[in-house]
Amino acid sequence: MHAVRNLRLCTKDCLCLFVCPTGATDTETGQIDFAKCIDGCRLCVDACPSHAISLILETYPEPKVKESTIQKALNILLESKVSQEQLCSSVASNSEKATKALATALARSTRILAEDCARESAFMLPQSESVRQFLAELVDKPYGEDFPYDAVKRLLELL
């Protein structure tokens, strides 16, 4: 486990800098240097008054694959939300003022609901078997020339 700093919470009072035994917390980027961070040390986590630092796992346990019945039901809801998003986006691009704003807000909101369905059905954790399977299937798909195959391959290496 290594430390990460949430820059939205950090109040720059720097207690983490002087408690860290290795200088891992002192970087130009504001992020903690993974390479210098001691596995599981957590001194900076406890020292930070703003709760801006946490430890994250290098490897997560494999999530349980859900029953196919619930996956299917969530996929139906996902597709329903996605078709609503499409309707809203097309209205947004063909209208103006209040109508455009409302359609834009509805499109973004339905996307969030669609993402929730995707997360709960099978895609909670990026580094999981179901995501790797998903990516492997994408590599084999005959999409057009503009499909970013390289991005999929790189993700398979990273995850």
Binding site: Q71, N75, V82, R111, A114, R119, L125, V131
Partner: peptide, 30 residues
């Protein structure tokens, strides 16, 4: 695992934006 062929492009977009957010929360920028 449900097969991809059953997902529309819009659903695939939502799956990917969901995973992008999950990576961001784990500070996995790439």
């Amino acid at each position: 695992m449900t097969s991809l062929s059953s997902h529309s492009p819009g659903a695939l977009a939502a799956i990917c934006s969901n995973l992008a957010k999950a990576c961001e929360k784990q500070y996995r920028t790439e």
